[in-house]
C-alpha cells in the first residue's frame, strides 16, 4: 500500500536519510525503530511531504506522492500524527476535530464525532474545552482523533509513547489495536521496543539514516545482537 524506495533527505550539508526503503501492507501495523536522530521522524515527515530537499520514490496505492504538497498527500488517504502533538490550543476539542474533518472515502472507515468520542471517552467530556486546557495524555488522544477525522487509510504515528506516563502508553496500545480492527494500516515510529512489540506486526530498524533491519519481532528476539547494535537496547 505504501512503498518507499531509496528515500534520501538532506538538511544543509548533512545527509539525514540515505536510500531508505520500506513498505506497509494492507491492514498492517509496522514499526519503524531507531534511536533518536536515526531518521525515524524525518522518514515519516518526508512521506507526509513536510521535508524539503528529499529525493527517491514514495508511492501510495500506486501513485507517486513524493514532492506533492502535504495537504494533497493527506487527501490521498494518509493521516499524520506528529510527535509533538501540535494540537490547536486556542480551539475547542470539537473545533480541533473540525480542522481534521474531510469527506468520507469509499475505501476507508468513516469517523464521526460520536464514533471518536466512544473511542476516547475523556475527549467527549471535554468537547467544549480549549485544547490548551487538556492534560498531556488527553492532548495525545486528541491529536490521534483529529487525524482520524480525515478518514485515513494509513496512519503515520510519530513516537506516540514519547514523554507520556506508562498508563497512557498502555491506552495508546489499545487504540492502535482498535485501528487495526477497523481495517486501517499504521506506520509507527518508536524507540520503545517493548511498546512496539505489543502493537505491531513487524519491524524496521533505522540507524544513521539507513535501513538496517527488516523482519519480525520473533527474529529480533532470537537475535538480540541486532537490537543491541542498532537500538542499543
Amino acid at each position: 500500500m505504501l512503498d518507499v524506495k531509496t528515500l534520501t533527505a538532506r538538511y544543509g550539508r548533512a545527509q539525514i536519510l540515505s536510500d531508505v526503503t520500506l513498505s506497509v501492507g494492507e491492514n498492517e501495523v509496522v514499526a519503524l525503530l531507531g534511536r533518536n536522530g536515526a531518521g525515524k521522524s524525518t522518514t515519516i515527515k518526508s512521506v507526509m511531504g513536510l521535508v524539503q530537499h528529499v529525493s527517491g520514490q514514495v508511492t501510495y496505492d500506486g501513485q507517486a506522492i513524493l514532492g506533492r504538497a502535504s495537504h494533497m498527500i493527506c487527501r490521498a488517504g494518509l493521516g499524520y500524527v506528529p510527535e509533538e502533538r501540535r494540537i490547536f490550543g486556542e480551539l475547542t476539542v470539537e473545533e480541533n476535530l473540525e480542522v481534521g474533518r474531510r469527506e468520507p472515502r469509499a475505501d476507508a472507515p468513516e469517523w464521526t464525532f460520536e464514533h471518536l468520542f466512544e473511542l476516547f471517552p475523556n475527549l467527549a467530556e471535554r468537547r467544549r474545552n480549549l485544547g490548551k486546557q487538556l492534560s498531556g495524555g488527553e492532548q495525545q488522544m486528541l491529536t490521534i482523533a483529529r487525524t482520524l477525522m480525515g478518514n485515513p487509510r494509513l496512519v503515520l504515528l510519530d513516537e506516540p509513547s514519547e514523554g507520556i506516563a506508562p498508563v497512557i502508553v498502555e491506552q495508546m496500545a489499545t487504540i492502535i489495536g482498535e485501528l487495526k480492527r477497523e481495517g486501517l494500516s499504521v506506520l509507527i515510529s518508536e524507540q520503545n521496543l517493548h511498546f512496539a512489540r505489543i502493537v505491531s506486526d513487524r519491524a524496521y530498524i533505522i540507524e544513521k539514516g539507513q535501513m538496517r533491519y527488516e523482519g519480525s519481532f520473533a527474529h529480533l528476539d532470537a537475535h538480540p545482537d541486532i537490537s543491541t547494535r542498532y537500538l542499543a537496547v
Partner: peptide, 25 residues
C-alpha cells in the same frame, strides 16, 4: 464557519493545518 475555524487553527500552526489536508496556499 469551517473556513473561520481553519483560519484560527492556521494562526497557531500552519504546517499542521496543511498536514490535515487543508490547502494552506
Amino acid at each position: 464557519t469551517r473556513w473561520g475555524v481553519l483560519v484560527r487553527a492556521a494562526t497557531q500552526d500552519r504546517e499542521m493545518v496543511g498536514a490535515l489536508g487543508v490547502n494552506q496556499a
